[in-house]
Amino acid sequence: MLGLLVLLTACSGKQEEGGKTTQQKTPAAAPKQAPAAQKTAVAQAPAKSGQELFNYWCLPCHGAGTGHAGTQELGRMRGKDKAVLLQRHDITAARVKHVVRTGFQMMPPFRYSEITAAQLDRIAAYVSSNGKESSE
């Protein structure tokens, strides 16, 4: 299961959000840098596609098979045919977004600092299309 987790790609010091790009600045009071030979800055970009985002944020609890807390509970609550999110045909994008932001049962809500609005749109589209819609 974890092998499917997204390997976040490296980028160079610039950060996302919603089309906005901000450049990392050096704080005036910040201390000296580590020696160049040891310094290997690795800035992480957010995962991009709906599939990548789903794999990163959702799959550990909602994957198929054993060991997934969300799949286990949904199976008990709704029946085995409703246990695996990507195999369901009754989940709308709006429902995905609502649950992610407000929580559901044992699953807590996710903050905008974790999953942005644009990223959640992609996750919701991916889930509600049974994993077919995964554009960047």
């Binding site: 299961m1 974890l2 550990p60 609890c61 807390a69 509970e73 609550m77 049962q105 044992m106």
Partner: peptide, 27 residues
């Protein structure tokens, strides 16, 4: 056993949250 085996070699997962399913709407 699966998730404990992962944890003891530093492979992150979220399986332990399954114990919250001991009761409905568990916390």
């Amino acid at each position: 056993f699966m998730y404990r085996s992962k944890l003891m070699q530093g492979i992150p997962n979220l399986t332990e949250f399954s114990f919250l399913n001991w009761v409905p709407d568990g916390a």
